[in-house]
Each structure stands twice: as C-alpha cells, then as structure tokens.
Amino acid sequence: MTAFVQQLIYGTSYGMNLAVAAAGLALIFGVYRVINLAHGQLIMLGGFATYVVTTQIGTHFFVGFFAAMAVMGLLGIALESTIFRILQARPATDQLLASLGVYMILGTVALRIWGDFEARPVNMPGEAWALHLGEDIRIDGARIVTIAITLALFIGLYFVVYRTHLGRTMRATAQGGETAELMGIRKRRVAALVFFIGGALGGSAGAMLGGLFNVRPDMGFQPLLMALIIIIFGGMGSLGGAIIAGLILGILYNLTVYYVGSKLGDLVPFGVLLIVLMVRPQGLFGLPGRRA
C-alpha cells in the first residue's frame, strides 16, 4: 500500500509535468490547427536554458525557470512568424513535416553544443522540504515543487483562457478564424500570442524535467511523444482534456513501471492511444468533429 501511494504521488507529479508540455501543444493545435513537433525541442531547450541560468550562472531555480519560459515563448513566436505563418495555407502534412524539420535542426544544434551527454543537473529548490507521510511514505521536495508549479501554471492558464478578453479572443479564433476577424479580432496577433504561451509552457516543462532528472540533448523526445498521446487522449485542442489525460497517463505509467517493469511501462501510453483511437477517436473532451 505504501509503495502504491508513493507511486501514485510520483505519477501525479510526472503526469502534471507532461500535462504542462501537452497543454502547450494542445493550445497551439486548438487555435492554429498545426501539430508542432518542434515543441519537443522547446522542452529540451527549456531544460538547457534553466541549466545555463541556474547551474552555470548560479542563480535561483526560479530565475532559470522564468528565463526558460520567456526564451522559449519568444522562440515560439519566431517559429510562428517565419515558418508556420508561411505554411498555414498549405496542407497539414506540409506543416507537420516542417515542424519535424525544425525538430531535427534544433536537436542537431543542441547536440553540437551539449553532445557529450554529460549529466547536467538543474538544482531545484526544496531539497530540505521532503515530506513524510506516516513512517514509510516520503515525497521529494523536487516533486512537491513540480506539483506546486504545475498547479500554479494550470490556474494561470485557466484564468487567461477563460477569464480574460485575451482568452476569449483565443477561443473565438480556435472556433472560427474568419468569423473572429469579422468581430475585429486580429488573428495574426492571437496566433503569435498562442505560440508564445505554447512555447513558454514547453520551456517550463523542460525546466521541471531538468530539475527532476538531468538535462540531455535528447530529453525532448519522450515528453513530445507523451504529449502527442495526451492531446489525442484528452481531445484535440482541449486544455482540460490535456491536463486530465496527462495525469491519468503519468499515474498509469509510474504504476506499470513499478509493478510490472520499465519495458512494459513504455508500452502503456501506446496501449492507451490504440484504445482511444478505436473506442473514442475524439478523445475524452474532444468534439466529434475534432478527431485525431
């Protein structure tokens, strides 16, 4: 029972981390209708940005965390205004392939700089904050910080999307770009903002993953894969769906790894993906018209 609770908590923290990564992807897909594979490398670069600012320069974790969010947000805008804007009128496959190209380029650049694969830790606060529940359950401070940050991010995201005019314009653009423009909404600016927020969420996911594990040039691949499964599972373009699906997958993954083994744990997300595609292709909270 103790191990189960411990894994449940670890799964929650991992799942929330993945949900942050997936929320960025879902937001961009919801408004822009593009699956941005380069998001994986924004997660990786977010981790390295935090490593450089926190570990190499020696500042507090949160300085690195916010720097990663800001830089990845700006990189998101740069990608939107150069590559995706030009390709927006083209078929979805062109955009997907272009984002794969960006993924490869950014990955290659990271390998040139950090290709020695040395362990690069990011010092997360809270080492002394480990929580003891009863005699046997111990939760690392880093996990607590991760859960706290993701909760804050989700509350902030909910506030922006559902409680501000900016969120209303984003939702309107997601539901009908042309109609939104006829309501006076500047679609291009909304798109840039969405890419900024999506990139910043990717950067924050990278910063937290770097804190939980180490930063590596290939660290963006698994979260990207998981995030893709999460947005299909949660419903394409649904933020709430991404958060819930992220939690479910994170917990399932951790429990499977612990009780069955790490090799089978890697199969869990794909098993879930296959079941979702067969039983409910629109995902948990997706509309029937928005299938994977």
Binding site: R168, G176, T179, M183, G184
Partner: peptide
C-alpha cells in the same frame, strides 16, 4: 470590423462552443 462595418453570413457562423451570451461578449471586445 473595428471601423464599424459588421456582417452576417448565409450560414450560421456563431462560435459553436460558446453560449449565446458569450458569443455577444466576444463581439464586444473590439
């Protein structure tokens, strides 16, 4: 649109995931 020229369409183009009231509020932003 911001200059004051509004239109409706032949086919319904309301924001389909928003309530009627929310559709009106969205139009009021700009």
């Amino acid at each position: 649109a911001r200059a004051g020229l509004a239109r409706t369409y032949q086919k319904n183009r309301l924001f389909f995931e928003e309530s009627v009231a929310e559709n009106l509020r969205t139009a009021m932003i700009w």
